[in-house]
Design a protein around this nucleic acid. Structure first.
Lengths: 245, 245
DNA sequence: GCCCCGCCTTGAGGCAGATCAAATCATGGC
DNA sequence: GCCATGATTTGATCTGCCTCAAGGCGGGGC
């Protein structure tokens, strides 16, 4: 059974108008596209969650009772085969939405890979709110369609790209760490392990590691630390990602 | 530039109440979930298309001006890499919806693989109609979410399954031909070529062919013709698809 | 009914990435 | 600071699928 720590912030939130006002993820999420009145109603239905690395938001095969909005941190979404093979279908970050894509039970699992804060809503509450808030539904539809395109990209990667192309693509699609200094050197933070990168790209740990080494040796990237990468030659990396080498 | 034959049925349709009334795909599609009044408005905006095998519905990188509803036949949706490698991201059949998942230009292509009929709508018209028809928007959101789950399935297949598991999974997810006789022998129609199956499963033609032969030799399936398969042992095929052998 | 053409099947050999194995390295606890 | 532990890197070998290369076959046109 799922055990999630729900922050006892109900009262505190009611004192200041609502928690959404100070939510860092608001401009990134579906919440950006609805007005203040609707946002207050949304906030009234929200539970605020605080998870440690490794804790579970969603467990496959359990009743699909809630939907989630990630407000900070990173989450892995994955599916398993019976013998333990794992495919990570996506990483989620602040502003990402999770959980609507199901029937009665979840078909995937989702876990924090670093400390995470999130809002959680009862699915039934959320459905009602959607029905009464067309702007929210439109925003969700847009987001779902955006995710479908991302999923098609990932299918192309998994079905037809080489290991070098996969890792290069991955590095380019991770959120850039420092948008204030967008120059030729972009910095990427990788909160996930090599094993998780491998399970996302349909490779093994060893292959991922070898490709990192290769990119490093060629001067395309530099490893600041295990989880911090500087892209030294973005153009070269883009060419590699698209198989133009 | 895209050239599609638009059937001159506008007047004929207006004589009987509307074309949707006789549309075989209606119970399968989003149209099933909206009432007659809304359906009439939808019908008034529709162009009816008739395509031959190989003709294009959507061309990647062109302006995303329309959305489509397939009413009969089969369609392949795919993306290409610059050197010609192809990933088919899905096959569409009667009732499937296509084209909303984009920004200003399409990022994928879609072509008929056998004679196809479809309804086409201007995206701007469709957006207006969606705004004014909550039931339609909800139906589209449900469908998008359903497709997202299917996409996650396909990522698991492409990233982690063996050739045998991929082909077995594929055979099980193709629409069953004869739902009237659901017994132990199910019959599956495959309107696509081996090359298309290969590009859908992330394999080569040869590997797909070898796996078919292997399944045939083991008595799991029988090839009635090149495009007609009878599943002799559905339980075995399901076990193979999930990697339980 | 026959012929052609494109699709499919089958075979032989090669290779990218997996597997197995062994250092080496980061990191948090004390 | 030192150590224990798990993650990462690196190396050697293996293998499932790809690539290259012939045949075989089915179905549409005449």
């Amino acid at each position: 059974m799922l055990e999630l720590k729900v922050l006892p912030t109900g009262c505190a939130n009611r004192r200041r108008s609502n928690a959404c006002d100070t939510c860092g993820a608001r401009p990134l999420s579906v919440c950006a596209s609805i007005d203040d009145a609707d946002l207050s109603r949304l906030d009234a239905l929200a539970e605020h969650l605080d998870l440690q690395s490794g804790e579970t938001l969603i467990q496959a095969d359990e009743a699909a009772s809630h939907v989630f909005n990630i407000t900070s941190g990173s989450v892995r979404v994955y599916r398993l085969l019976s013998d333990g093979r794992r495919q990570i279908t996506g990483f989620l970050f602040a502003g990402d939405f999770l959980g609507l894509a199901t029937g009665d039970t979840y078909v995937f699992s989702a876990e924090a890979i670093e400390p995470v804060t999130a809002c959680r809503f009862r699915k039934s509450d959320y459905r009602t709110l959607i029905r009464e808030t067309p702007a929210l539904e439109t925003a969700l539809l847009d987001r779902a369609n955006h995710e479908l395109v991302a999923a098609q990209n990932q299918m192309l990667l998994l079905g037809r790209k080489t290991a070098l192309e996969r890792v290069s693509t991955f590095l380019l699609e991770m959120p850039t760490q420092d948008p204030a200094r967008p120059g030729p050197q972009e910095r990427v933070h990788l909160p996930m392990t090599r094993a998780e990168i491998a399970d996302y790209l349909g490779l093994t740990i060893e292959t991922v590691s070898r490709v990192f080494t290769r990119l490093k040796t060629q001067g395309v990237i530099r490893l600041i630390s295990l989880s911090e990468v500087r892209i030294e030659q973005p153009d070269v990396l883009r060419a590699l990602a698209d198989g133009e080498a």
